[in-house]
Simulated assay, not measured.
Amino acid sequence: MNALLNVIWLLFGGIWLAIGYFLAGIVCCLLVVTIPFGIASFRIGAYALWPFGRSVVDRGGRTYFFSTLGNVVWVLVAGIWIAIGHVLTSIPMFLSIIGIPLGIANIKLIPVSLMPLGKEIVPTSGTRFPQQLR
């Protein structure tokens, strides 16, 4: 079921989201100071490419302070606009029956797009669709 939802997601917008995140990652990696944001953009892009069957968890660890500081900068510069974009693109998806899971996947991208540093994308082993809302 996850593979089918991922293919539908890919055809109806996932590829464009991923390309956007990958382009942002390239731009961020060109500027030396923003390389951590570029790496985070690549990670989000990979997640936006194939979101069903995976979820976002906190990485934790000793770099918590620096991740929080970087996330504050990210939210102020880009995160809030990306989150608004995800909300606005999820609204038309929710309007159709087949688009409801795609809208949920778009909403699932909001936390990692708001605060990408210190997050890790992990596979959800053996879970069904409603449990992926975590």
Rank of each mutant, 00 (worst) to 15 (best):
M1Y: 09
N2Y: 06
A3F: 11
L5A: 04
N6D: 14
V7E: 06
W9A: 00
L11I: 15
G13M: 10
G14E: 03
W16A: 15
W16M: 08
L17H: 14
L17D: 09
A18K: 07
G20L: 08
G20N: 11
G20W: 04
Y21W: 13
Y21G: 01
Y21F: 15
F22C: 02
F22Q: 03
L23S: 08
L23F: 10
A24H: 05
I26K: 07
V27Y: 12
V27S: 05
V27P: 00
C29M: 15
L31H: 06
T34A: 05
T34C: 11
T34N: 09
T34L: 09
I35R: 01
I35C: 08
G38D: 06
I39T: 08
F42V: 10
R43A: 10
G45S: 06
A46W: 14
A46K: 13
A46M: 13
Y47K: 03
A48K: 04
A48R: 03
L49Y: 10
P51C: 08
P51F: 10
P51V: 08
G53W: 04
R54W: 12
R59Q: 14
G60N: 09
G61I: 03
R62Y: 07
T63F: 13
T63C: 01
F65C: 01
F66H: 02
S67G: 11
N71V: 09
V72A: 14
V72M: 11
V73A: 15
W74N: 01
V75M: 12
I80W: 15
W81G: 12
I82K: 11
A83I: 06
I84K: 04
G85V: 07
G85N: 05
L88H: 01
T89W: 13
S90M: 15
I91F: 03
P92W: 09
P92L: 06
F94M: 09
G99F: 02
I100A: 00
P101H: 06
G103S: 05
G103C: 07
G103R: 07
A105H: 02
N106H: 06
N106K: 11
K108T: 03
K108G: 13
I110L: 08
P111C: 01
P111M: 06
S113H: 09
S113K: 05
M115S: 12
M115R: 10
M115T: 15
G118F: 07
E120K: 15
I121G: 00
V122M: 05
P123V: 14
T127D: 08
P130E: 02
P130C: 10
Q131E: 14
R134Q: 13
